[in-house]
Design a protein around this nucleic acid. Structure first.
Length: 540
DNA sequence: TGAATTGTCT
DNA sequence: AGACAAT
């Protein structure tokens, strides 16, 4: 009996545009594009039908398409919220919550358990082995169960018919074993996509196969609002037609290294022009070797990419955790040369970063779900190095960001002066002269806060830590006054609550910093109110 | 070309 | 820790 995974890859169609259409349905009928700085990063399918391309310069696009409507998409919060909402929705449908998010618009679902549970139902009906292409009339109406507990939950489908498109257009000879499991997977994929459309109003494209790469590659072949199944026996044929750069995880860098390794002679000189380099998977597989891959890309990457070209991908679906592993905010500009400008930008970025931390790392009670340990500052110098090159420096994150007893402005000033600016000095070095096009601030190494418990015994068990907590908070202020460097303070103990504290300041804050939510009446820390209201908008 | 996140490699 | 590569 086979145990290979059944993987579904989902991809929201023209995601940023779909979100914009969700909030402004008028847009559905017209050609429009989403702008970020001087480019349009994506456009809806109406616009694509007219020839508008993704990642076009804005000026070029409006010159060529004067009627194209432009929507600004530099604020990602609505896209982030929608992405999260769709992810949560899908996760509810997948047993074990085995859903991995890739960027804002892609999901990988491991539906192996769901498929195999339904396979046992099929076996019990003594029909599984009856399905062959040569007995097309033995069609079975099957109820696919989507819940182990409730037998009435699920959907009907016809077996062994396949839902959606066939990669390569090929239908297997027999529908037993893994092929039948994929057929079930195709119906599940169709069901999930229809639920997303019905309940959430978003169209998606899906791919179904036996690993993440094959599922994703298959799903990319029929868009929008379609799905594609790839049976393993056709995987190599399917992949062979692609340019290697179209295979997921092979970007332009890896592609260039591979082609260089193939087409450069022993003298190290490239004898072929770019145009004559055959970059199809088929050609590369036959001209190169695993040896050539590992020697040019390194042992690990070489092996991995070589396997990919042969449809082999053993990476598993890693369920995306509820709290992010990092939060970063950035802004870009033509040129940034003075310290005062840098400080202004950093103040703005710090405010946005704190907003994000309250939204993503705090629950509706104002309790922290996770504690970042590290602050990282990144920049991109202008016209030095190659495109996209960034440099960064990091240091421990001042725990004052978790404090509810300081004003927002105080925390921001503290961050800029004692965290970002020292890191900035570290970044630019001794030269003291700089010209930047980008600043990025991030909090990383986010530790999950221990689950909150009302158990009184845990209070006594942790009281000694609480004392340190308070001491550290005081030391924080001393450090501020004495002008000692950052990184010397001890971090706060994560996740500890102080509802019992007798400290007068803290009692004062407890009562003065909470406001009643107009929706649910809960007492919310004032600075968490914004996040709390977003929560209501999302859930209600 | 954009804003942001994640993972790998050294 | 930081650069680099991927989406």
């Amino acid at each position: 009996m086979s145990t290979c995974p059944i993987i579904i890859a989902l991809d929201w169609d023209a995601f940023y545009c779909s979100v914009e259409e969700h909030f402004n349905p008028e847009l559905k009928k017209i050609a429009f594009a989403v702008q970020q700085k001087q480019i349009i990063c994506t456009c809806n399918y109406v616009a694509r039908a007219q020839g508008v391309k993704k990642l076009q310069l804005l000026v070029d696009a409006v010159k060529q398409f004067p009627d194209l409507v432009i929507v600004n998409g530099e604020d990602l919060s609505r896209y982030r919220d929608a992405s999260k909402e769709l992810w949560y929705f899908v996760r509810e449908m997948v047993w074990g919550g085995k859903v991995e998010r890739l960027g804002f618009d892609e999901l990988f679902l491991d539906v192996t358990d769901m498929v195999d549970f339904n396979m046992t139902l099929l076996d019990n009906a003594h029909v599984a082995r009856e399905f062959t292409r040569h007995s097309p009339h033995s069609v079975l109406s099957f109820f696919f169960r989507t819940s182990q507990q409730d037998p009435s939950m699920g959907f009907s489908c016809q077996l062994p018919s396949v839902a959606g498109n066939l990669a390569t257009g090929s239908l297997p000879e027999d529908f037993t074993g893994d092929n039948l499991r994929l057929v079930l997977g195709s119906h599940l994929c169709h069901y999930i996509r229809s639920q997303i459309l019905e309940i959430k109003g978003y169209t998606s494209s899906g791919g179904v196969s036996i690993n993440k790469t094959l599922a994703k590659t298959a799903g990319a072949t029929h868009k929008p609002n379609q799905q594609t199944v790839l049976f393993p026996e056709f995987a190599q044929d399917f992949l062979d037609r692609f340019d290697i750069g179209k295979i997921p995880w092979i970007g332009h860098k890896s592609k260039s290294i591979i082609l260089d390794a193939i087409y450069k002679g022993t003298d190290g000189v490239n004898h072929d022009s770019d145009r004559t380099r055959d970059a199809t998977v088929f050609n590369v597989r036959h001209v190169a070797s695993k040896q050539l891959f590992t020697s040019s890309l390194g042992q690990s990457s070489g092996e991995k990419l070589w396997d990919l070209l042969h449809g082999v991908d053993s990476t598993t679906v890693q369920p995306t955790p509820d709290i992010p592993t990092q939060i970063s905010i950035e802004d870009s500009f033509r040129s940034l040369t003075s310290i005062i400008e840098v400080q202004t930008v950093l103040r703005k970025l710090s405010n946005s970063l704190l907003d994000r931390m309250y939204i993503d790392l705090m629950d509706s009670n104002g309790d922290w779900l996770g504690h970042p340990q590290t602050a990282r500052l990144s920049t991109r110098p202008r016209s030095t190095g190659y495109y996209g090159s960034r440099i960064s420096r990091s240091d421990s994150l001042p725990s004052i960001v978790f404090s509810s007893s300081h004003s927002r402005d105080y925390i921001v000033d503290y961050l800029v002066d004692r965290c970002w600016m020292p890191l900035f000095s570290k970044l630019i070095g001794d030269t003291k002269t700089f010209d930047l096009v980008l600043l990025n601030v991030a909090v990383v190494n986010i530790d999950k806060a221990p689950a909150k418990t009302s158990d009184i015994t845990s209070f006594f068990g942790k009281k000694h830590l609480v004392d340190n907590h308070v001491k550290d908070a005081r030391r924080e202020e001393l450090v501020t006054k004495s002008g000692k460097g950052v990184g010397e303070h001890a971090d706060l103990e994560p996740g500890l609550e102080l509802p019992w504290q007798e400290d007068e300041d803290l009692i004062y804050e407890e009562t003065s910093y909470r406001e009643s939510c107009v929706v649910c009446g809960q007492r919310i820390m004032s600075f968490a109110l914004e996040a709390h209201m977003r929560f209501h908008e999302l859930v209600d």
